[in-house]
Nucleic acid binder design. Structure first.
Lengths: 235, 235
DNA sequence: ATTGTTTCTATTTTCGAAATTTATTGCAAA
DNA sequence: TTTGCAATAAATTTCGAAAATAGAAACAAT
């Protein structure tokens, strides 16, 4: 059995653990469409195990809100709505602001150093993306670096809990953002400038400016939020 | 098979669902001591099912951070430390403040009405507790009303996600608070006054005052946070 | 006494099939 | 055509036992 490194950094030997990670990855990268049923019986072929271990992996994911589980009727992928998207975005911003504020307060050289490094890596790929005609090859890499950058922002907050929850909400946000906005997040020079502004104010330890920069960066299309109504349904 | 109502409000038929709820309840009420192993093989007798369904219930709980799961070495209860307690407290306050701010902003009569009702119920039992010599009979009831009161505070925030996460963190906080502070939360007249102050400022829609009141209420022993070391034991 | 190896026991993980429940289809009645 | 019911199919839940792994105990060697 091959060893894999899971979300929390530990190594897993079990096939349920492997299935968990592969499922989680697939969910984040939109392998299944919204609201689709996830049947252990079918999935077992894709992952070459039994339906039992698939069920176990799905239950884990349900506990972390990455899949929906309804007793007696199984599992399904999330069904993003405009509401759930906005709720996730708000929560993400709340957690990121808090982590950022604390990180700046602590004011640690290591943190600054890691932040600059993460930003540099992100910037490098973003520069390439500016000149590319087809971005599809960059999506995965950019997304990884973007996640690392935003993790680096709050890395110095001294709360493992906050970091862990932020990471989870960030991933859930991304799933919903892709479904709702129809894009994976990179908006060209605008995005790059926003990242730059965040780093600059962070290094200056200007908490207010940095918070504002993060807020603006995540809350794009702000004007339309209250204009474009949610695709109205439901009684 | 008896029907039970689970955490999210839905009804469950499955024995795994029942086990999940009973385990969750037991964990919140300190049925097992900190760091204790939770072995499906033993637990199955207590809940009169098989180890398989116990395992399933435990996996769900692990996903929600109510138990610790390490692959190949099973499940165990949480191991509260002073750090984890403080982290949970901070996160609880962050979420509660946010929910409260939004609730006040929305300014809804129904919300005020429900809040007053929840506070009234809490006050009723607290009055009785003031005159009681033995509080042990009141713990469960008070805890339920306190949870409902704090849920009522943020009930008008319009974010199901925020409410759900707050509830989860609140419960986790309580587990750690009991372990760390050695008490279940009621501090006599002080607590009652704090609750009153929270309601009063909420009804006056004085967001700042209300936030401050919540902060003070939850962050008790603030001065000692950096002074009083954790009851040092453990190797 | 300490270290390292082997043996044994307890626990966890995995599997497959039976039991239960839900969903679908086909058919008859209004 | 629609509605209600029965039969069928599909999926979920539960069970029990086999396989794999970890932890403890006993033992030997330095």
């Amino acid at each position: 059995m091959s060893k894999h490194t899971n979300f929390s950094g530990a190594t897993t030997h079990t096939s349920a653990g492997v299935a968990y990670e592969r499922l989680r990855d697939g969910l984040i990268w939109g392998r299944w469409k919204a609201g689709e049923k996830l049947k252990p019986q079918h999935l077992k072929d894709l992952f070459s195990t039994t339906s039992g271990v698939l069920r176990e992996a799905l239950i884990r994911l349900a506990g972390e809100s990455f899949v929906i589980f309804e007793e007696q009727r199984g599992f399904s992928t999330l069904n993003p709505t405009r509401e759930s998207f906005l709720e996730l975005r708000s929560l993400r911003i709340l957690l990121e602001k808090e982590g950022l504020t604390l990180s700046i307060q602590q004011g640690n050289l290591d943190w600054e150093s890691n932040l600059v490094a993460a930003h540099g890596q992100l910037q490098l790929i973003e520069r390439k993306m500016l000149n590319a005609t087809d971005l599809s090859d960059f999506i995965r890499t950019w997304s990884r670096y973007d996640a690392q950058f935003h993790a680096a922002l709050i890395a110095n907050c001294r709360s493992d809990l906050l970091k862990k929850e932020h990471r989870r909400i960030y991933d859930l946000y991304r799933i919903h953002a892709i479904a709702e906005l129809g894009t994976f997040g990179f908006r060209g020079k605008t995005t790059m400038d926003e990242h730059q502004a965040i780093v600059d104010s962070a290094l200056e330890r200007d908490t207010d400016a940095c918070i504002k920069a993060v807020d603006q960066h995540v809350t794009i299309y702000r004007d339309q939020d209250n204009v474009k109504p949610p695709t109205s349904q439901s009684g």
